[in-house]
Design a protein around this nucleic acid. Structure first.
Lengths: 340, 340
DNA sequence: CTGTTAGCGCTTTCAA
DNA sequence: TTGAAAGCGCTAACAG
């Protein structure tokens, strides 16, 4: 080496074990590194250490505005040393499994993301082989004894509170729009709980997909079927926005004729007219927290059983909801009193 | 090896040089691979071949809805063999340079993306070292003799056509809202050309950023300053949506009082009320095309000087634009005739 | 404190 | 048509 020092010593220096190295030698190495603009070769290091320094961020659909924020935050938290690969799973089981298998083969040191189709047991081999896994979930989940960390938001409670919010405005006929294959079950559960507690009828409209078009179609079908409710709760913001559009096309005003609320607080929710009431899940904080759990696993700070981290949500009250038009005056006043 | 064959032979087999291998041996290798579920080790291969099989997709801001579609398409085109790392540059020069430097050191085989701050010369070392580079641009650009491929959409012409579209509706006072540091220059140029050709006054309002809030602020300032124009052209959709909001808050209707058009055709543009007229740049096709150019470089199919690929745009005519209210009746009829 | 040595798992000559 | 051998650049164990 240029510094008149062996490879191994440089390696020790780079590893930060500076106390094992003579002050003078360290200085010589340092200046040689600066002079040569030396950077250790990643693949050689990976081959030797069996650590790829690559993390896969698995999301169902990166074009859904919910996920880029999550991804960006995770990436920022992991820092420049780690490469973060975004994987579009489409929520498909085979795609999710493929990523897990790749990690098992050493391609990824860690897995972070939203796994709609894989269960804890699917991660078993990878986790036992030392792959760090952090899932982002819609509810508290038991990962058995596997070392899988979960970051979750209590979506059921969020849905309950959002429904309560609508109830407290005086709505009685509140109906939900949901598609299958995502975080909808817990959200529907929360809605159902709140409605049943209040003694009102539970009505869930099935949509084809978690998209604006899915929401719009469901609403059109609902309108054809007859008398619309005074409030609609959509399983996510995209569907809510589609629903708003369909109502507008049918000549109904929001929130005058129908109140609408969604879920996720994605950017278009704030840009919609009227602005959409929703539940903020703070995707950036989810991503950052998940990434920091991953880093703790990498550094060995954490190594026991899986951890469970609950993250807060916020009900975002915006212009798309209001009291029902048909409501008797006295009741409205009554409600006001209750809510103050 | 399990197949009673040497490492080297397996490597030859895997490389696809099947004609160099005895039929029987090939079969034995194949079944051994299947049985062992063998996959060659990436880092060993990378170390040996100096190809990382990783591509960096550089975008200014992955949370801007324009980019995820680009990213996803590029990723899909590159296929599962390549890992695609999304890099948020923030449009910052140092971030862009850091990625280039990393590629030069062998971390990335290829670079694909939108480089707001780096010029062709910044890529020189990397390109000469064999890194494949495909840029996505807003105009035809000369990359000198460097082997840099460009995929571009003629944004200037797009802006001109969009302005013409507004002019043909009868607008005379059309003003633009733009921020600095992005693709705004060519878009402003196109607007200016169209206006000057029509003999109308060119007015450009400066916004702070390419965001909805940036657009809203600029419009508020404009309204305070006095009489608003009958049409506004925003440098991108986010700003246009912000502008729509600001106008709404000021009690002006779109398109009744003011027509608005944007640029990019991001998802929220179609979800806005009224739906936003804009220019579709087809980000998915941009990403796919860029990725395929990259693959051609990788495979050696292409190796000469940089290629220039022009991609089409489409004017998307939606409800946010209409004829100016104050327009004399006869003129409107006249316009109708012209446009038929 | 520092250097020597032995691989990590692959591809690539070159020889048989 | 196949195998032996070298080595990509690094780290970890051990010896000095």
């Amino acid at each position: 080496m240029q510094a008149g020092v062996s490879q191994a010593t440089v390696s020790t220096f780079l590893a930060g074990n500076t106390d094992l190295i003579a002050r003078e030698t360290a200085l010589r190495i340092k200046s040689a590194i600066a002079e040569l603009d030396y950077t250790p070769n990643r693949s050689a290091r990976t081959l030797r250490t069996q650590r790829s320094m690559v993390v896969a961020c698995v999301v169902p659909d990166i074009t859904n505005p919910f996920y880029p924020a999550l991804f960006a935050a995770a990436q920022a938290t992991l820092g420049a040393e780690y490469d973060v690969v975004a994987i579009n799973s489409g929520g498909q089981r085979d795609a999710e499994q493929a990523v897990i298998a790749a990690a098992l083969r050493g391609r990824y040191d860690g897995l972070l993301g939203v796994f709609f189709s894989c269960r804890a047991s699917d991660f078993e081999d990878a986790v036992k082989a030392g792959v760090a896994v952090v899932r982002i979930e819609a509810r508290r989940k038991l990962s058995g004894d596997l070392a899988i960390d979960d970051v979750f938001v209590d979506n059921r409670r969020a849905a309950r509170e959002l429904t309560d919010c609508l109830l407290s405005l005086g709505h009685v006929r509140i109906e939900m729009v949901a598609a299958a294959g995502g975080p909808e079950t817990v959200r529907v559960d929360g809605y159902r709980e709140a409605m049943q507690k209040a003694g009102h009828e539970v009505v869930v409209h099935k949509a084809k997909a978690f998209t604006a078009e899915g929401g719009a179609q469901a609403i059109r079908a609902m309108l054809e079927a007859g008398d619309p409710p005074t409030a609609i709760l959509a399983a996510n913001d995209l569907m809510a926005i589609g629903a708003m559009r369909a109502l507008g096309e049918a000549g109904l005003s929001v929130p005058g004729d129908v109140s609408i609320a969604g879920f996720d607080d994605i950017m278009p929710a704030a840009l919609a007219v009227p602005q959409l009431s929703t539940v903020a899940l703070h995707q950036d904080e989810l991503g950052a927290r998940a990434a920091s759990l991953l880093l703790q696993r990498f550094s060995g700070v954490a190594d026991g059983a899986g951890r469970l981290v609950e993250m807060p949500f916020d009900i975002v009250h915006r212009a798309s909801i209001g009291p029902p038009r048909q409501m008797p005056h006295e009741t409205r006043i009554h409600q006001r009193r209750n809510s103050t």
